[in-house]
Structures are given as C-alpha cells and as structure tokens.
C-alpha cells in the first residue's frame, strides 16, 4: 500500500512538470507585458525595462522556467506582480475558505444524490423516479450563474431567509453551498441510479434473494457496495474540482476563495499568481485521484494496488 502511494506520487512528477510547462508557454504567448500592467500604459520605457530586469522577464525563457521550477520545489511560487505578496501565501490564505465551501456543498450533494439515486433505481419508473430524474436533468443543465442569481432573488431578496453575499458567518455559506452542490447532487443521483439499476440485475442479487434475505439487506448490503464503486470515481473527481475553487459561485457570492483569486489573477495578468494557482490545482487533482484509487481498494477486493 505504502509502496503504491509512493510510486503514484513519483508518477505525479511528470504530470506536474507538464502542467507547469504548458501554463508557462501559454502565459508567454498571450499578449500583454506584466511590467506595463504594473506601471500603467503611459509609463516611462526605462522604468518598464528596469521592472522587467527586476522580475527576470528579460532572461531567456528556459532560464525563467528553470527558476520557477527550482523555487516551486522549495515551496516558493514567486511573488504576485500586483500585490507583491508571496503567491504561496495568497493561495494558502484563500484555500481554507474554498475548502469549507467545497466540503459543505459536497456533503449535501453526496447525501442527497446517493439517496435520490438509490430510491429512483429501486422504484424504477415510479413517480418519484421520473420526477427526481427530471429535476436532476434540470440541475445538471441549468447554468450555475443563473441558478445562483435566482437563489439570491428568492431566498435573499424576497424571503429574506439568507444573506445574499459575503463571507462572515456560517449562514453566508448556506446559499453558495447549495447552489454549488445542485449540479454535483444531480450528477451523483443520475450516476447512482444507473449503476444501481445495473447491479440489481446481477446474478448475485438473485442469489442474495434466494438465500432468504430481506429486500432491505439485499439493497443496502449486497447491492449498494457494488453500486458505489463507480460512483466513488465521480464523487472524487468532482470534489477535486470543487476544492480548486468555483470561479462563478465564489465570484457571484463574493466569497474570498481560490476561485475568485484565479479570476482576479487572470484579469490582472498576474503571471506568477496564475502559474502558482494552476500548479496548485494540478497537485490537488493528483492527490484527489490517488485518494479515489485507494478507496477503490477498500470497496472492491478485485482491485489490488500494485
């Protein structure tokens, strides 16, 4: 097991290198000079050159990339062009907020999604099944910015149950967590339903019934564990996605998380910050996938980690 984890982490190195390289190239081919951004359009060219020298932007690209990698290995992702703060600190400052939002919406989504999915499958073609699958389809299809605004209008403006935006009390988290969780819950529900329907047609479910087990035990012991195996992948990937920040939700609800920081970094051409966030995102995904793979081994004895 430990061997497996170490090996997977070693395999992650080329992935992270690739991600860094691609981001680095992309940032260098997009138009715009960070030095000009910092000093303003009408700045003195000498001052711009001075800044470019200071930032190392006049060095050959491979030197710049090498320097970035060397520093990144030591946990230093450079300083933000805009604020002058260390990028690592900016990311770590906003990350806990994103984690809180991600985990609360994931919690709601997994609980709701699994329950709805299992009931829909067990009561296939019932009213509940049809109704919940239509709602789930709507949940997946509706754009999140629209859902967010509608939720703000209804629960914030008209009913006045919940604050519309900001981030000061736990109450502020409820609306964004639900908005962010809707799509997640909907996809889990649909996925759970389809894998569950597949599982309850298997021969071993017939065996379990032939043993004299109550339907409850057949569903929750024999079927659920098998049905969960593919659902775990979906949950794992989605949580990784949520942990790297939700651009729209965080922006709409004015939550100072990683998503909003990314948008800010991009719109300000803050190269080190963008590069740092992308690398951080890649790390989160690599770890997320690793956790999914490890949890497989616990759910499915056929998967042995080699």
């Amino acid at each position: 097991m430990i061997d497996y984890i170490i090996r997977r982490l070693i395999f992650a190195v080329p992935v992270l290198l690739g991600v860094s390289l691609i981001t680095f190239i992309l940032l260098n081919v997009v138009p715009g000079d960070p030095a000009v951004e910092m000093l303003g359009k009408h700045a003195d060219p000498d001052a711009v050159q001075k800044i470019r020298n200071q930032l190392g932007l006049n060095d050959p690209l491979y030197v710049q990339f090498g320097r970035f990698l060397w520093n990144a290995c030591r946990g230093d992702l450079g300083r933000s062009f805009k604020t002058g703060q260390p990028v690592t600190k900016m990311i770590l400052d906003t990350f806990p907020t994103t984690v809180k939002l991600a985990l609360s919406s994931a919690f709601v989504a997994v609980a709701v999604g699994l329950t709805v999915g299992v009931i829909s499958a067990v009561k296939q073609y019932s009213f509940f099944d049809h109704a919940s699958m239509i709602v789930a389809l709507a949940g997946i299809s509706a754009p999140i910015f629209w859902v967010a605004v509608v939720a703000q209008l209804i629960f914030g403006l008209h009913l006045k149950w919940l604050p519309i935006s900001g981030y000061s009390t736990p109450k502020h988290m409820i609306l964004p967590a639900i908005v962010l969780g809707i799509r997640f819950a909907a996809s889990i529900a649909r996925y759970t339903r389809s894998t569950f329907l597949d599982v309850i047609r298997q021969d071993y479910i017939r065996t379990a019934r032939a043993k004299g087990l109550a339907e409850r035990a057949v569903i929750f012991v024999h079927a659920l564990k098998n049905a969960l195996i593919p659902v775990v992948t979906v949950i794992g990937m989605q949580i990784s996605g949520l942990l790297t920040g939700s651009f729209l939700t965080e922006t709409i609800f004015a939550i100072p998380g990683l998503g909003r920081l990314s948008i800010w970094a991009l719109s300000n051409r803050d190269f080190p910050l963008v590069q740092g966030i992308v690398l951080f995102t890649a790390v989160i995904f690599v770890i997320g996938n690793l956790i999914v793979d490890i949890s497989y081994a616990f759910l499915d004895p056929r998967v042995r980690l080699h």
Binding site: D203, Y204, T207, A210, K211, D300, P301
Partner: peptide
C-alpha cells in the same frame, strides 16, 4: 417466503462466475 428460501428450499444457479457477490468473502 423469506423464511423458506435458503432454509427449506435452496437454489443454485447456472453461472458460478457471477452468482457470488464480488465484494464479500
């Protein structure tokens, strides 16, 4: 019926490869 199944009347099936639950010993 549940008290009869697996107790007084048992059944074995054609497909031993798929008739056992893969995730339990």
């Amino acid at each position: 019926m549940r008290r009869i199944r697996g107790n007084r009347i048992s059944m074995i099936f054609q497909e031993p490869m798929t008739s056992l639950n893969p995730v339990f010993t």
